[in-house]
Simulated assay, not measured.
Amino acid sequence: MNDPVLHIDSLSVDYGYDDNAVHALRDVSLTLHAGEVLGLAGESGCGKSTLAYAATRLLPPPGVITGGEVTFTSTRDDRSLNLLRASDSELRASRWDDTAIVFQGAMNSLNPVYRVGRQLTDMIATHRPKTSRARSRARAVELMDMVGISPDRLDDYPHQLSGGMRQRVMIAMALALEPQVVIMDEPTTALDVVMQRQIVEQIMELRARAGFSVIFITHDMSLLVELADRIAIMYAGRIVEDAPARDIYSAPRHPYTEGLLSSFPPLHGPRRKLGGIPGSPPDLQALPSGCAFAPRCPVAFDACGHERPDLTATVFGDDEPRRRVACLHHRRPLEDLPAHLRRQ
């Protein structure tokens, strides 16, 4: 495993204050390694985007970071920066250079009254003030070509581009300064399946070429199985499983992960009935006293109703690497587990 480039330790986030606060994140710990694609998956409202915005200090009010640390470690010069304690000037210098983010709504991220080319060159000029206007324009042309858009479109306004093109422009902007970490918050949302495929393939091609690390946020598990090296599953503001993508797909260890995987149809093999997950996500202001997933879990037992499982490293046999799972079932003897949760 490569060296860590972004380490999130016990990050907690509330929306609101005092007794009315909603605990959106609770002690979330996650590590992104150099060159890795880390998928972050879960139902809507589980805290995926909140985690990304809190880690980069882009969390809008009334969001409040109530605890934790986020450390960026450069693979170029061994420089380390605590993003939550950095000054405004340090944070401004780090953004787009060390870490960049592709927001979910490209149309809302681009300024509608400026041409696309100006927005790219202005960003480059802001962070690289010694760069000449001609060089900034040349870099913008290079970036547009990199994401498969004709440089002629630099003189267009955002509304003149299709949804897929706008999303590609945002990817180009994120890569302009060659950052080491790129966070992509559902970059293929609201795009048709053909455009989704094109954008995902371009992301993987650019990542292979530039060597940056990626946090890819989505609710589409089928997408992550294809592109991620590792997948972290979120539920009710916590990580409930963290493992290599191939192991998540072939042998999910948390019942919630298994429910997510059974919610999309297989592309190969015999037809099967889609399973899904019964019920609805819990109210974050009134979580169950034990495991938050217990009311929806098909294999919950008595202890699940009053004991909250910690995310602990667990070994499921010599041929399967260590993975983190927050489930009480894995503290029980193997023979006591339901058959579908055992190692096949």
Rank of each mutant, 00 (worst) to 15 (best):
H254Q: 07
R209K: 15
T71N: 12
V214Q: 12
P244N: 09
R168W: 03
S263M: 07
R271W: 09
A174H: 05
T50K: 05
L224Y: 06
R296M: 08
T312W: 01
A208W: 00
P158E: 12
G211E: 12
A52I: 01
Y157W: 11
Y17T: 13
P179G: 09
A292C: 06
T31Y: 05
L224V: 05
V200L: 15
A134D: 14
P282H: 04
L334E: 15
Q104L: 04
D310G: 14
I171R: 02
T71K: 15
G211I: 00
A339Q: 15
V70Y: 06
P266D: 13
R135N: 12
K130E: 13
P338D: 08
R133V: 12
A172P: 05
E90H: 05
V13N: 08
P288R: 05
K48A: 03
K273Y: 00
D88F: 00
L223I: 08
T257M: 06
G305Y: 10
H254K: 12
T71G: 00
S74K: 08
S109K: 13
T257A: 09
Y249E: 12
R118L: 11
P295N: 03
I8F: 03
Y53Q: 15
A54I: 04
L206C: 08
G275V: 04
P112M: 03
A303V: 11
F293Y: 15
V113I: 13
S150L: 01
V225D: 10
R153K: 15
R323W: 01
P129N: 07
H159S: 09
A140H: 11
V64L: 13
V225T: 14
T312D: 14
G305L: 11
P321F: 03
P265T: 04
L161H: 03
R115E: 09
A176N: 07
Y15Q: 02
T218H: 02
V181S: 11
A292G: 07
P333N: 06
Q119W: 07
S10Y: 00
D185T: 02
A174E: 09
Y157M: 06
M1I: 01
V70D: 08
W96P: 02
R153G: 00
P129A: 03
Q160Y: 01
H340P: 13
G117L: 08
L51M: 14
M195T: 15
F216H: 10
E241K: 02
H254Y: 03
R137I: 00
D302Q: 13
G16H: 10
L287V: 05
S80P: 00
I277C: 08
I248W: 09
G105P: 02
M184D: 05
G211H: 06
V325F: 09
S94H: 14
L274S: 08
H329D: 07
D3C: 00
R85A: 14
M165A: 02
V5W: 02
R128T: 11
M165S: 07
L260K: 06
D247Y: 13
V147T: 04
P112Q: 07
D220G: 06
R342K: 15
F103A: 04
I233Q: 04
E36Q: 15
N20Q: 15
R166A: 04
A208V: 00
V325A: 06
V299P: 00
R57A: 08
P187W: 01
C291L: 08
K273V: 14
S49H: 03
S12C: 11
F72G: 10
